[in-house]
Simulated assay, not measured.
Amino acid sequence: MVSDKTKSATFNRISKVLGFIHRHLDTPLSLDEIAAQSCWSRWQLQRVFQAETGLTVANYVRQLKLSLAAELLLDTDQRVIDIALATGFNSEIAFSRAFKQFFACSPRVYRKAGQRTGLKKPIEISEVQVNGERAQSFVEVRVETKPAFILKGMRGEITGLFSLAPNFADVVPKLWQRLDAEANSTSLSFGHCLGVVDVTKAAFDGSNLFYWAGIELRSDIAMPALPSVVSEQLAILNVPKQTYAAVKHKGPIDRLPQTLEWFILHWLPTSGYRGVDGYELEVYPDDYQADASHAEMEYWVPIVRV
């Protein structure tokens, strides 16, 4: 069994490696250079890095470089060749090839579309309290633009994370239970589940928030069918197109408030983005198990570039 001391030492070494990568995205960044920042060989670093982050070193570096390049395409009028060189690529051809593999379009097409999507942000460290003890973890954030969509679901009023008396832990599970009861009465294939928090009219004290436990309807469902899709007992919510920062939460769902607190108080103020009042999303995989220690979901917060 790996001791807590060994886990902490490994975490700190990977943190050092991440910091080195983040500071040198404007250079080619060879694996030899990165491995030199740790106590491991190249092969050992690859193994430990992937175990801790779920990514190979090369893929992580490439994703960050290309995401930085995509931001430069949208935020500046720099030439593609200049952006390629500024992010450590040796030529525009090599850069454009890598960019198209990652974003499924050329740099010029991405710039013309003007939408922030698929942007990977540097992995950061969060500190939370677990059973009264401080625990550190690596947290992934990315930026996505999601088109407008229609949700059908159960709606309830909640008080939020920063209110004097937050009640979402009591209200939200009951809404999902009611949704399950309605959805189980039909065999229709209509879409996948999303939690939506409507903060468009939220008060400063965390009140006047509305939570939807809902089903995102497939785009191919005809408008006349909407009232009867899933159940006539479910209300319809139209969610507009928004750009989001999507933070990955790992572990039981009851620890989600701690992840969101880190995200709002620590990540957002230094991110180059600011939050806006809109519709926040809880995105779950189909096999999600809310109480499992290995569970993973994402929380999407509407943002705009500062």
Rank of each mutant, 00 (worst) to 15 (best):
E232V: 11
K241Q: 15
D198G: 11
D4H: 12
R255K: 13
D291M: 11
K121F: 09
R134D: 05
E92I: 02
L85M: 09
A58L: 04
T186P: 04
V171N: 04
F11C: 09
V2P: 08
R42I: 15
L188K: 09
G278E: 07
A222S: 14
F190T: 15
C39E: 10
L64D: 01
P122G: 04
A235Q: 15
P166L: 05
L256M: 14
Q63Y: 13
L25T: 03
K120S: 14
F210T: 13
K112T: 10
R47V: 02
K16L: 05
L119E: 03
A169V: 13
S189N: 10
V61C: 15
Q101M: 10
E282V: 01
D75N: 13
T87F: 04
D82A: 07
E182V: 06
Y288K: 05
N184H: 12
T159D: 06
F162K: 06
S106Y: 09
S41G: 14
R23L: 11
R274D: 01
D77V: 01
W43G: 01
T243N: 07
H266D: 14
Q37S: 02
F138C: 10
H22G: 11
R142L: 08
K250A: 07
F95W: 12
P107R: 04
W43L: 10
V276A: 08
M1W: 01
S185D: 11
N59F: 07
I14A: 05
S3L: 07
K241I: 04
F149G: 03
D77A: 11
S3N: 01
T27R: 15
V229Y: 03
F20D: 03
L74W: 09
T243A: 06
Q115H: 09
S137R: 15
K121H: 11
L18H: 09
G160S: 11
P257F: 03
D75L: 13
K241M: 14
K174Y: 02
G206L: 05
I264A: 09
A203I: 00
Y273S: 05
L188M: 12
L29T: 03
E33I: 03
T53E: 04
W267M: 02
D286H: 10
L164M: 08
N208T: 10
L66E: 08
A292N: 11
R178H: 09
M154I: 13
V2M: 15
V304D: 10
G114E: 07
A35S: 15
L73R: 12
R62N: 09
K152I: 08
W300Y: 12
K250G: 01
R178V: 02
G156W: 00
A94V: 07
A246F: 00
V196P: 04
C39G: 07
K146N: 03
E232H: 11
G160Q: 09
L256W: 00
E124V: 12
R142V: 02
D82W: 00
S187M: 03
E157I: 05
L119R: 13
L55I: 00
G156M: 06
V230K: 05
L18T: 08
V229L: 14
K5S: 14
Q101N: 14
G156I: 04
F204D: 14
A36V: 06
A148F: 02
L119F: 10
S163G: 13
L226S: 01
L260Y: 01
T243F: 02
A58C: 02
